[in-house]
Design a binder for these strands. Structure first.
Lengths: 155, 155
DNA sequence: AACGATTAGATCGTGTGCGATGTAAACCGG
DNA sequence: CCGGTTTACATCGCACACGATCTAATCGTT
């Protein structure tokens, strides 16, 4: 990937790992949309609900650390989930700076439904559990390398 | 990935291949930003320039097929690249419906610079050429499976 | 030649993402 | 206990990304 195979230009799209990730992310979005749309959810909203399913009463910052997003993205997203009745937001009594987010019963039920349909799609990927796990592990390792690079730049 | 390991909920974020892809895509964006920002480019703009580097005088549709985007995303992006002087857009004389996009000399020089810095980052990923190629191939296969799923749904 | 169907781009509205900045609460050294 | 710093979240502006829709050009059939 670091060196050119063709004559005219430095890098071709097809040799780039980042484009493979970029385009596959788009493909996942397109695949999930027809599943999530009838439920009234976007893909990032679904990820946030999954995070809350793992640990309820999280702060905005904790959710952000889990899904790699900041408050500037999460605050409007959470407000939409709240308006839809899927979550509740309230200031922490002990530290008024923090906002605690919790699933409503309706949100928990929705998450349950979304997970069920999602598991069907996992089967459609045509990967064995071992293949999927090996691939996932390699990708996450790459992600962590990238995050370390960015963190080192910021100091 | 298709079956639950935990007791309380269906799926955990950490077992999901789609979240690995999603979060790694974000990590790539964050890693490329400090490289591309000084050049006045966004990451999708860079991908489009790369596509034009491979084949100049492409139509909007051809670019879209290459980077998996539609005209609703590409038209404004191309207008910004045009306003910056990196590309030229003109209607095809033979078929006035089509718009031909070409790199200006300035755009070609910019692409050259961007590629150079990008190759440095490829080294930082700490993957051998063989590892990177194997990983890229597996991800692209997954992408193609997903795209086939979506295409079959549309008919 | 004529006209309905198809195709290529463009436009619009909504929802992310994120850098930069704002605001209020909590912390902390003196 | 007080003023400066840090922290947590919110706000704003810009740039994707995409479904839905529009317009203009081309094609196909008669």
């Amino acid at each position: 990937m670091a060196q050119s195979a063709t004559s005219h230009e430095g890098i071709g799209l097809d040799q780039m790992l980042c484009f493979a990730i970029y385009s596959t992310n788009g493909a996942f979005n397109r695949a999930y949309r027809p599943i999530l749309d009838p439920l009234g959810l976007t893909y990032p909203q679904y990820l946030v609900l999954l995070a809350l399913g793992e640990a309820d009463e999280m702060t905005v910052g904790a959710i952000g650390a889990r899904v790699f997003l900041e408050s500037n993205t999460l605050t409007p997203l959470l407000k939409r989930l709240e308006a839809a009745g899927h979550i509740a937001r309230r200031r922490d009594a002990a530290d008024e700076r923090q906002v605690r987010v919790s699933l409503t019963p309706q949100g928990r039920a929705l998450l349950h439904d979304a997970c069920a349909v999602t598991e069907d799609m996992a089967v459609s990927l045509r990967l064995s559990r071992e293949q999927a796990e090996a691939l996932r592990g390699a990708i996450v390792t790459l992600r962590d390398t990238l995050n370390t690079l960015s963190a080192n730049r910021d100091g």
